[in-house]
């Protein structure tokens, strides 16, 4: 369960986000839509506890992110949140498999290597486990990023424009994978995107950017 109450966020006088009340039940997927600069990514970072709201409260699975101290927030994020970035942001010195395993390492949870391999194989990357990221195509890197977001079985999956750099086929595959895993794990999926191709795939949408 995710609830947002009376949320205000901005930089200085510039108000970017204003959400009075929003709730997302467990196992539901949410599309955050809005034009560029509308605060979609800021909302994801707020949900991940990487930004602090100016006002308001965000509850994830009964935990108030704002009430946690920095260290506890880092731990909470490492355990319960999976983040898919717009850019894959892979670590160049590490193999594809290690790029996935770095998530539980950073989050301080036990790495499930077999599960990581299974995820990568499911994403069609079975042949690249021990290759470095530079050997991959953009779409393949993005899929490694997806595997990294899923490997520690997070309760909340946050994805920032996960499909904007992908062609139609890869776009459908990546989104399908995120939705399938979220459903299977009972995780909440929050996708921020202005990609018109995926709009029809979500029952729940939240529009941001109207509160300037």
């Amino acid at each position: 369960m995710m609830t947002i109450d009376d949320l205000r966020f901005g930089y200085g006088q510039r108000r970017i986000l204003e959400i009075n009340h929003f709730a997302l039940p467990d196992g539901e997927a949410l599309l955050v839509e809005g034009p560029s600069g509308s605060g979609k990514t800021s909302l994801l970072f707020l949900l991940a506890g990487l930004l602090a709201p100016q006002k308001g409260r965000i509850m994830l699975n009964g935990t108030d992110m704002a009430a946690l101290n920095g260290r506890a927030r880092d731990r909470f994020r490492g355990r319960h949140i999976g983040f898919v970035f717009q850019q894959p942001h892979l670590m160049a010195p590490l193999s594809v498999l290690d790029n996935v395993l770095v998530a539980p390492f950073c989050g301080g949870v036990k790495a499930d290597r077999a599960w990581a391999v299974h995820l990568l194989e499911g994403l069609g990357l079975g042949a690249f486990l021990h290759r470095k990221p530079h050997a991959l195509s953009q779409g393949q890197m993005q899929r490694v990023g997806v595997a990294r977001a899923l490997v520690h079985r997070p309760a909340v999956i946050l994805a920032d424009e996960p499909t904007s750099a992908l062609d139609d086929a890869a776009c459908a595959a990546t989104l399908g994978l995120l939705q399938a895993h979220a459903k299977e794990a009972g995780a909440q999926l929050v996708v921020a995107s202005h990609d018109g191709r995926i709009k029809g795939q979500f029952k729940t949408t939240l529009a941001v950017g109207g509160a300037r």
Binding site: D74, R75, R77, G78, H89, C106, G107, G108, R148
Partner: peptide, 16 residues
Amino acid sequence: LYDLALMRCLGATPAR
């Protein structure tokens, strides 16, 4: 910086 920020994002504490 990207990698370190990424690690922070994945839950690593600044100290780590």
